[in-house]
Simulated scan of single mutants.
Amino acid sequence: MFRLIRHCLVGVALATLIGCSPQAQDQLARNAARSALTPVVSEQFPGVPLQPTLDCLIDNANAQQIRALAADAVLGPTESTFQIAKDIASKPETLRCLAVNGLPALLR
């Protein structure tokens, strides 16, 4: 039942996106992905500056990861959300971003 509700909600969200420009669709998906990642980052990385960390994760996620995270935003994070966050965070470019943007914010 839970899966059916989730699929219906994702379907409604996707139908809403159809009328948007590709840029608006991308921004909506990124915003939804950010909302799915927020509780994950807060839980998994307590004390880390939230906004710079979210920026680094979103900016280094691929399109498939953004879509999966956006779907997770509908009903909240799942185990998949945590795994995707871990995969993105382990990318060298994400680690560089965190070193440049996250650490200075932490040291303030």
Rank of each mutant, 00 (worst) to 15 (best):
M1H: 11
M1L: 09
M1I: 05
R3F: 05
R3T: 08
L4D: 11
R6V: 10
H7K: 12
G11K: 10
G11W: 05
A13R: 08
L14M: 13
A15E: 07
T16I: 12
T16P: 00
L17E: 06
I18A: 08
I18Y: 12
G19D: 00
G19Y: 03
C20K: 15
C20M: 12
C20L: 15
S21W: 04
S21F: 05
S21H: 03
A24G: 01
Q25N: 05
Q25L: 01
D26H: 02
D26V: 02
L28D: 05
A29L: 14
N31V: 11
A32S: 14
R34N: 06
L37W: 02
T38P: 00
P39M: 06
P39E: 04
V40P: 00
V40G: 01
V41T: 00
S42T: 12
S42P: 00
S42C: 03
Q44I: 06
Q44M: 07
Q44A: 11
F45A: 01
V48T: 04
P49C: 01
P52C: 05
P52V: 04
T53H: 07
T53L: 12
L54W: 05
L54C: 10
L54H: 05
D55H: 13
C56W: 03
C56R: 02
L57K: 00
L57G: 00
I58P: 02
I58H: 05
D59E: 11
N60L: 03
N62G: 13
A63H: 11
A63E: 15
Q64I: 12
Q65I: 09
I66N: 03
R67C: 10
L69A: 05
L69S: 03
L69T: 03
A70I: 09
A71W: 10
D72I: 11
A73W: 08
L75D: 09
G76R: 09
P77N: 09
P77W: 10
E79T: 13
F82K: 04
F82V: 04
F82I: 04
F82L: 03
Q83Y: 01
Q83F: 02
I84V: 14
A85E: 03
I88F: 03
I88R: 00
S90Y: 03
K91F: 03
P92C: 06
E93V: 14
T94Q: 02
L95R: 07
L95A: 14
R96L: 15
C97I: 06
C97S: 10
C97L: 10
C97T: 08
C97H: 12
L98F: 15
N101A: 10
G102Q: 07
P104H: 08
L107F: 13
L107A: 11
R108C: 07
